[in-house]
């Protein structure tokens, strides 16, 4: 398993280097960032999200529908996203408390332009996964715990009308608790795109 994990990380690194090579070499016409300079536009998205894979967690908690809110802008290469995913977990065992998982994330990726006003986005996601337990039997410090999380994300965007686009997103996230948690989250929702105001561009650049 460890070898597979290392191979996976190695492949991700290769992918990262390749994408950068395209950027450095200037052969990036396939990629969407050629259309926009860094921080020139803002994309705000709101998605309905749900965990979909079956893990050891499912023996004790049943995942419920949550949401993801994010804000995205073109970066020096690719685009960068900051956002929050909230996923509630309902206990199936009276001994276990309910908890809500909140992933505050940063994501970097690149969009591949596809036909029919669509694009495919892929990237890396990293963040802090906070678990808030509805447990009144422990002291305040133990009611909340946070852990580093990282993974891959992919998204299909379809431009719908004016400045709106639909998206379907899939995230594979590893949460680095002592016993690792691998969660797969599917989301669907709407993005709104607009030009970045000058003050925001000034701040970010």
């Amino acid at each position: 398993m460890l070898i597979l994990y290392k191979i996976r990380l190695f492949l991700i690194l290769i992918l990262f280097i390749l994408v950068n090579y395209y950027h450095i070499a200037g052969n990036n016409t396939l990629f969407a960032q050629t259309r926009n300079e860094a921080f020139s536009e803002i994309k705000i998205g709101l998605n309905i999200s749900a965990k979909h894979n079956n893990t050891y967690l499912n023996d004790f908690w049943s995942p419920k529908t949550g949401f993801t809110g994010n804000i995205e802008t073109p970066f020096y290469f690719g685009s960068i996203t900051a956002g929050l995913t909230v996923l509630p977990f309902k206990s199936t065992n009276i001994k276990m408390p309910d908890y809500t998982g909140q992933l505050i994330f940063l994501c970097w990726g690149n969009e591949l332009i596809l036909p029919y006003n669509s694009s495919f986005y892929f990237g890396f996601k990293t963040g802090n996964y906070t678990m808030n337990f509805a447990d009144d039997t422990v002291n305040t410090n133990l009611k909340s715990e946070s852990e580093f999380a990282a993974g891959l994300t992919s998204r299909l965007n379809i431009r719908a009308f004016n400045n709106f686009e639909f998206n379907i997103t899939g995230d594979a996230i590893k949460i680095f608790t002592k016993k690792k948690m691998n969660i797969i989250v599917f989301s669907a929702g709407l993005n709104y795109i607009f030009s970045a105001p000058a003050w925001l561009k000034e701040f970010l650049d």
Partner: peptide
Amino acid sequence: GNETGDPGPYRYT
């Protein structure tokens, strides 16, 4: 900073 390796929800298991 945050070092990985917390128990997370597994602390109830």
